[in-house]
Structure formats: C-alpha cells, structure tokens
Amino acid sequence: MQDQTAAGPIIEIKGVNKWFGDYHALRDINLTVARQERIVICGPSGSGKSTLIRTINRLEEHQEGSIIVDGVELTHDLKNIDAVRREVGMVFQSFNLFPHLTVLQNCTLAPIWVRRLPKAEAEATAMEYLERVRIPEQANKYPGQLSGGQQQRVAIARSLCMRPNVMLFDEPTSALDPEMIKEVLEVMVDLAESGMTMLVVTHEMGFASQVADRVIFMDAGQIVESNTPDEFFNRPQSDRTRLFLSQVISQ
C-alpha cells in the first residue's frame, strides 16, 4: 500500500528455526515472497509446511531468524503482531467459522471490532465478498446449516473482509468431500487471478500447476526444492521430490 514498500517483497523469511520442545520443526527456512506472488507449498505430513505458514501470522512463534511482513517484523511486540494479523488473512483446514454467529456476522465481526468500520459499511463489504464466493443467499444462515464447501467459501470471504494483502491457506480442501473441493478451488483461482498474494499449503497439484508462480517442496522442516510449476512437475531435482510426486500423482 505505502510507496516505500510497494516495490519490495511482501514477506521476507530469513534463517527461521522453530522447535516444538526438542523437536526441530523448521530448519533454516529462507523464503522471500514478492507482491502478488502465488506460492503453493507441498510435502509429506509432518514436513513443517503448516507450521511455516502459521509462523507468518504468529499462530506459531519462531525461535530463531526473522520474519518481516510488509515492512513489519514479527517479534514479541504485540503491536507488531496485531499489525501483521490485520494484513494477513488465513483459511484453515477445518474452516473454524464461529458457529454462534450467522454467516454475515462471521464476516463483519473483525471489520467492526478490529478495523472499527461502521456496521452498515462492514455489512456492505461482507455482502460484496459473499457474492464473490457465490453464496450471498446464505448470509443469514448459521455455519452449521451449510455444507463443508459452503463453509470454506464463507471462511475465505470472512478473511477477505479484512482486506488483507496476503492470504494464507492451510490445506483448505483437505476436509472436504470430493465434489466440494472444486467449488472451493474455483474461488481460490478467482482470487489468484485478482492479484492476491497467496501462500497455499495443499496437495491439489492441479491447482498448483494452474495458478502457482512457484511450488515449494518441504520435507523434515526444510525447503527441499523451490521452482516454477513446470520445472517442479516435469523436471524435479531431488530424489525426495520425485518420490513424493510419484506418490501424490498415483493417487
């Protein structure tokens, strides 16, 4: 948004290490994300891919290295953490909609209480995004009345209502029935085409090859390979990647 940062990268991760107790979960992660870049992160379970994107909005704390999001470094300073969380949206595997609020209230809660928008304005924005994810007619229902695919689309709209500069997706389609994966991926493709910076942890390789600028393969807490989708899928460099791809694609 600001001129002095508009040109630089939106996320800079340098030498990040993270431990859960004794377990070394992230090892020397270096990653720079350009504005409007779309990155897909894949890897076997336990490889640290979810942990990595969760450090970007400080749902997980890193112990070494630095993470700078849009010019703000994530430290113990709560002000910085709040500032980053306002700019970074996140979509979870299990949707995590607030079940006691309607779809519309889910979408207006943070804009009203965090961004201090007037209610009418927040509702107008919410309806705009609910239309973008194609479920404006569900606005007054409760999450429990919607299908999984619809809930995930609401979760995307809820994040977008904060007008974030970056969207993180943590396995957004893994909890969905096969026929609902498509409707969520369509919304994500739309979003990618609109120029949103996206980091997506997913096993949907079709999505990766269609929209990603870069595919990152992680294993054992490290970034093993980082390449364009074309190179990544057709000429993977490490044996570990080849093995992973053969397993994912044979499914």
Binding site: R85, G89, S94, F98, A110, V114
Partner: peptide, 17 residues
C-alpha cells in the same frame, strides 16, 4: 476447539475481544 481461538487471533482480535 483450538481452531476457534486461532481463527479469532488470525482475524486480529485481541485476547479480551
């Protein structure tokens, strides 16, 4: 569920909010 706390945090809500 923990996800409710995380979703609230990710949206930028503070502890009391």
């Amino acid at each position: 569920p923990r996800g409710q706390y995380e979703a609230a945090q990710a949206l930028g809500l503070g502890y009391w909010q």
